[in-house]
Each structure stands twice: as structure tokens, then as C-alpha cells.
Design a binder for these strands. Structure first.
Lengths: 234, 234, 234, 234
DNA sequence: TATGAATGAGCCTTCATTCAT
DNA sequence: TATGAATGAAGGCTCATTCAT
């Protein structure tokens, strides 16, 4: 798991494990384009209608290719979904996998700033790739155990990132020792969900985004208590 | 039913609105039993396989009735899902709709105790009604807008409860004024998700449950900062 | 076949032949009422929706009895149809089976008057028993060969009546010898169909009725030729 | 196509209106063939068993294609029926839509010859396309209002043709003025029904055909009266 | 290689018929 | 006797997948 600034890619590790990717394109360059094209169309269709309600023909049409072509590049509709989720995970990771975000903070303030940045990055997805986010958040887990687990693992990676940082802070002495880094990691990721879901449902506005970000920051800063002792953000 | 006088029946309100319940049972007692029986079977099947992947015949078989009987009591497979979700929402609400939980706290400590109780109540669902929880968390939103929205509203009710209490605390002066009660309400509910999901996936053990509960309590108590001033509960 | 005035009932003979009537009511008096009641309701439902599109439950509901009761008096939905058609044929025959109509005419004028009376009687059905007429004309033949044949036989009886009279006239010397009595009999019945169908479809008004009656009378009286002229063919 | 200048395309008009033809064939030539093939099979099956009693699978089997192929070219079983009836109407019209038949007669003799030709043309259908005729006469009206009306309109077109000619004759002074051209038009068409139905039921033989044709001609020529006499009505 | 026509297993739903009460 | 709940066979229709061109 990445913890050093020079180690910016390993997040992608989550993508390499799954048992997916049953079909392999014969020609790496040219036909990989086709796959991308089909996966892109599938993302839009699946996000719009859901996986089950989308037909392979709709995906083909959206991609501007024949139905047979889809089956030339994918063994089954299910494999398209696998690739779709892989791509979604990759986009999710790309968003987070930035050196700046991964820079380990050395103080509570910078940790909280990092969390704010993480939330910002995720909220950015609502605007930039709502379909990707929708598939990851609502569709993935409903499909099937195996796939749900893979997507879960995406969340785990994020949470793991946070957990590592927390551990770092605990070891460094500037974070409470009695916090469970893993549980807190998950919790911090979870704190972004309401804002993300709301953004997906009703559309995101700057005010909402700020409101949810501030709330996250406030909660991780000092909980619900009145500051007056300490721990404040922004 | 909520016991606060000023707070008549808001929780149950969410159940009264939906467009479900298209048919009318000819005999109140007998046929309501059948409906319950079929809905119960459907909950298990839907939770196991997902709504789309479950056939009406499977529901009938699980219920121990003929396929025709299912359609005697429900107009369509879709209406079964409506009833299933209604029942899930009701169970969710029943779990939370306890006088003790709804008692408005007057201090930060009692508020946090209430949050712990709420988390406890939800974690209890993992053991008592994992299927109900799974349907609410995983299946519902993937189905369709209208239904997803109804379930969302269930979450909103929960978050609203918390928000109300927060407002009470802000007015009472023992909570920070700059917190957005609604956003915080959602956030606190969201804090339970990682623990609930993990419980659903790998099964819940007492240690995990405590770990997640403590994390929630810790976060809402003082955030990530070192108590030195600290407000903490327990 | 009836040809004498004193022989007013044999028309009903057509009802006695068919292989229908599979079920027999246990009690002649009381339960015969039930059968009639169910058949009446079936006539309305079948006429409204067609035999195939009508469910046994609809018939039962219309009759104000339980579904089981229908099957107590009829072995199958199909048998209801048999009885329905029997009843329709009976009503058709009752309309024609009047001494006055059956009185054998002795002149062309009285023959034509008889034809006018026959047309009148049939047109009366449009107002008095449109459902009966509809079932006989549009539904019956579409169902099945056997049943269609029975209804056809009803038409044959009518045509046969006319044919007999024609033969009488030919023998009497006041009708052309080269007419085929049977074919002409059918033709005269057929002449009423357009008026009957129109009446069923758009509702009958007195003007239409007169128009069609006059046309029938005119055609059988002198064909298309101008009276005074003699039209000849072949 | 009618050759009278004042009478552009009325016959075909009946084909252009209906709400049928929902789908569009992707490839004009090839898929139109499939449609024809399926419609042809449907005509045979529907004529044999009736529309309701025929399953889509039976049509597919008869057409020698898979069930899915049927639904590739037709949205529903019902749409097949629409096309079937359209085709039947077209065949009916083609039979009558001959220049010779549409030539407006100038004398009673030629009018009657025209009627004989019309009857001949229709009786020809019994031998050439009995299924088409059966569907038009027996099945169509029983199906449903909208469709029944379309077929009715086919009959109206035929009757209208006759009516036009009659009007021509009345204006020309060689036909009685007091005949209602429309009613007589329908009546003349109706005169063919008994012969057609009998042909369909028991099979047509030359003798029957002649007998019915002669009867029609006789009736329209001079009614029932002995030529030389003039029959009068009313 | 790309296409889309062809296929049929499988699903939702209906409804005639039965039978316990 | 009357009822209506229960049943499951059967049909319309969809769509993932194949394969000839």
C-alpha cells in the first residue's frame, strides 16, 4: 500500500487482481480502442438504465458498432460489466491517486486538509463522471457478490489510504492512540456518501458541496463538541 | 410510535405515501396472511439473488404456494417488490422508533449516548434481519428512481431525527452553532454504513461491532483530535 | 320442415340435434333458473368482449354467483358457449316462429309481404336483442367449426322456410320456374345482413330500417329494372 | 386501379389509413420477404384455427423460422393480424380492381353482366384464396372493433363501387329512381355471401357456383316475379 | 474483420378448472 | 349447495448469444 510520495501508482493494484478479463483482444493497439469505445457506451447505458435493463444491442448501438462486434471483443454481456467496473474503479483511483493527495501529512491540520482535498476530489466526480460514480455506488453492489466485492475493495483501498495516514499520525504522536485506523478510514470515506448521493440525485450545486465538505471537516476536526478547547478546521 | 408529544407520527409517514398497494384484499385477515407470507419469501429470495435475477416462480416455491397464488395477491412481480420495500422500511423504522431513542437529549453526553444507541439498534439489524438490511442498502437504490427515492426517504427520516436533536442542542447552546444539522444528520447515519456493510458481508462479530460503534462515538465526540480537552462519552 | 300453418313449432327442431348440452342440471326447476341466469350473463359478456376474451370469472360476477357455482352448472366454459348459442338460436327462431309469418302465401304480393315481415322481425332483433344477434352473426362462426355449423343450420332453417314457400309458389304457377328455391332462400336471408350489421354497429334508426326494408322488398319484387320494363338476364 | 378518371384510387385508399405498420424494415428487399413469408403462414394458421387459438410459435413453425424471428419483424402477435388483414383486403381488392369490372355500364344488361362478373370474381376467391376469404368473412369482425371496422370498410368499398354504378344508371334514366344506391350496393354484395360461405364450408363445385351466380343475376334482374309480369312493392 | 439476422430458452402473466370449507 | 382460494399449464414476448455472409 502506498505511503510514500514517490509511490504514486500502486493504487492501481486493485485493478490487477480480479478474475475478470476473460477475453483478450487479438491486436493490442487498434482493437483496444474498440473495447474502450464499447465500455464507454456501456457505462452510459448501464448508468442510465441499470445493468439488467440494458440490452447488448443498446450498448452496440450507442457505441456505433454492430452487435456482433460487441461479442467479438467481449465474451458475454457480463464481461462488459466487468470491464465497465474496472474502468470505473480506475477512474475513481485516478482521482485519488494524485501525489498531492498521497503526500503524508505530518500535523493534524495538514491531515484534515488532506481529508478536505479527498472529499473535494470525490465531489468532483459528481460533476465530471456522474455515471462512473453512479455505477460504483448504486449499481455495483446490487449485481452479484463477486463484483460487489471487487468494488468494495476499491473503497477499501481508499479507506486503507486514510488508515495508513492515521497510523502515521498515531505513531507520530499527534493523533489519539485509541482510534482504530481502519474503522476510522472507512468512516471518513463513508462521510462523503451522503453528499455524493445527493449530488447524483438532485445535481450538485456549489453551496451543497461546501456544506457537505465543511460538515465532514468539522466532524473529523472536533466532532460535535463546541470548539473552545481546540481542533478546528478552515 | 414516537412518544414526544410534539412529534406525532412522522416516522410512519413514509409508509403512507407510496403508490404501492394497488389491490385490495377481499378478506382482511386471511389474505393479509398470505401477502405477508409471500412478501417474507420474496425478501429472502430478493436478498439472496437480487430482484431482477429472482423469478416469480422462485418466490412462489419459497412461499410454498402455487405460482398462480402469488398473482392472486399481487398484480405483478414489481408490486411484490413494492411491498417488500415497504416492509423493509417498516422494520427499519420499528428498530429506531423506540421511545428511548427518540427521547430528546439535553446534554452532549446524552446526545452521544443516543447516537451510540442508534448505531446499536442498526447493528442489531445485521443479526436480526440481515436480509431486510441488505435490500435497503444494496438493492433498493439500484431498482428505479421512484422506489429508490422512497427508500432514500427512509434514510432521510433517520437523518432528520438526528438533525432535529442537533437543532435542539444548538438552540440549547450546548452544540456548535455553525454545524449544519441536516448535513450532520446524514453524516452520522452514514457513519454506520461501513460497519453495517461489513457485517452483512462477512458476518458480524461482537468485536467488530464494538470497534465500529466506538469509532462512531469517538468521531462524533471529538473528531480525530487528541482529547486533552476532549468531550468523550463512555 | 314446416310448410303448413298448423305446424308452428318444428323450427325448434334445430335446437334438438347438436351434440352440445354436456351437463345436465340435477334439479329441473330450481337450478334451471340458475343456468338461465348464467347463460344470460354470458350472452352479455360474450357479446361485449367476445368469447375468448371473456373469463369465466367475469361471467360469474355478472351473474352474481360464485365462480364455483358456474362450474356446478356447466362442465366447462365451452359448454356455456354452447348453451349461449342454443339460447340465441332459440330467440332467433322465436322471432320467426310466428303463425302469421309461417302462413304460406298464395300470391306474389302476399309472399313479398311475408318477406317484408320476416325482415321486420329480424330488424326487430337489433333493438330487442342486439347481443343475441351479435353473437349469432359475428361471434359464432369464428369460434369453431362444429359450433359455426350449428349456427349455420339456424340460417339454413330460415332459408329453408323461404325456400319452401318459393317452391309452393313455383308449383302454384305464380313464381318463375327457373329459380332455385334453396339458393333464393339463402339469398333473401342474406339481403337482411347489411341492414342488421349496420344496425348492430351504429345503432338502428327508423329511417335506416325503412331504407333497408324497402330495398329488400324492391329487389325481390322486380330486381333493379324499372317496373313496367322487364329486365332479363342471360 | 380504377380506370374511371373521376375516380382516382379509392380502392387502395382503404389500405393506406389503418394504424398498422408500426415497424420499419431495415432492408427493403430482404426483410419484406420475411414479412410476407410470415404473413402467409399466419393466414393459413389463422384461417385454420382462428386468431385467438393460434400461437405465435405455430406461425413461426409454419413459416419455417424461429419464434424470435417472428418478433424481429412484428412487434406483437396482434400486429401480425393487422398485416394479415391488410393483405387479405388487398387480395380482395385486387380481384375486383380490374378495368373490365370497373368499366361503367350504360345499360341494364351491361350492369347485370358486371354484377355477374363481380360475383364470378368473388367466387373465384373461394378456389384461389379460400383462407383469405375465410379470414375476411369469418374472423375479421369477431376480433375487435377497430379491425372489424377496417374490414367492414373493405366491404363498403365494394358496395360503394356498385352504388356508384347504380347512381350512374339512375341519372341515365335506365334504373328506377326510387332505389337507394347505397343500400342496394350493400345488398348486392350480400347476395354473394351465401354462395361464398357455402363454398368455404363444403368446397365449391361448378354446379353450385353457377346456381348461386344465376340466382344473384335473376334476383337483380327481375326479383322473384315472372319476367313479363311486373312485380311491385309497397 | 464487421455485421445483424436468426434462434430458442426462459420469464412474466393469465385463466380454466378443482376442491376444501 | 355455494363459494372463492389455489393451482399450474400455456402463451406472448425478450434478449443473450451464435454464425453465415
Amino acid at each position: 500500500m502506498p505511503s510514500t510520495p514517490s509511490d504514486a501508482v500502486p493504487l492501481v493494484a486493485v485493478l490487477e487482481e480480479g478474475p475478470a478479463r476473460r477475453g483478450r483482444p487479438p491486436q493490442p493497439g487498434l482493437s483496444e480502442t474498440r473495447r474502450e469505445q464499447i465500455v464507454s457506451s456501456a457505462i452510459e447505458e448501464f448508468a442510465e438504465r441499470g445493468y439488467e435493463a440494458t440490452t447488448a444491442a443498446q450498448v452496440a448501438k450507442r457505441a456505433g458498432v454492430g452487435l456482433g462486434t460487441v461479442y467479438r471483443y467481449f465474451d458475454s454481456k457480463r464481461e462488459i460489466l466487468d470491464q465497465v467496473m474496472e474502468r470505473c474503479l480506475r477512474e475513481l483511483i485516478d482521482v485519488v491517486d494524485a501525489p498531492a493527495l498521497l503526500e503524508p501529512p505530518e500535523t493534524l491540520e495538514s491531515l484534515i486538509a488532506r481529508i478536505r482535498d479527498l472529499a473535494d476530489a470525490l465531489f468532483g466526480l459528481v460533476e465530471d463522471s456522474p455515471n462512473v460514480l453512479k455505477l460504483l455506488m448504486v449499481e455495483a453492489s446490487a449485481i452479484e457478490d463477486e463484483l460487489g466485492r471487487r468494488v468494495m475493495r476499491g473503497e477499501q483501498v481508499l479507506a486503507g489510504l486514510v488508515a495508513e495516514v492515521l497510523e502515521h499520525g498515531i505513531l507520530g504522536g499527534w493523533l489519539r492512540k485509541d482510534l482504530d485506523p481502519n474503522a476510522v478510514g472507512h468512516s471518513i470515506i463513508a462521510l462523503t456518501w451522503p453528499g455524493l448521493l445527493r449530488g447524483l440525485r438532485v445535481g450538485q450545486c456549489a453551496a451543497d458541496r461546501a456544506r457537505y465538505t465543511d460538515t465532514i471537516v468539522a466532524l473529523v476536526s472536533f466532532g460535535l463538541c463546541r470548539p473552545g478547547t481546540d481542533g478546528q478546521a478552515r
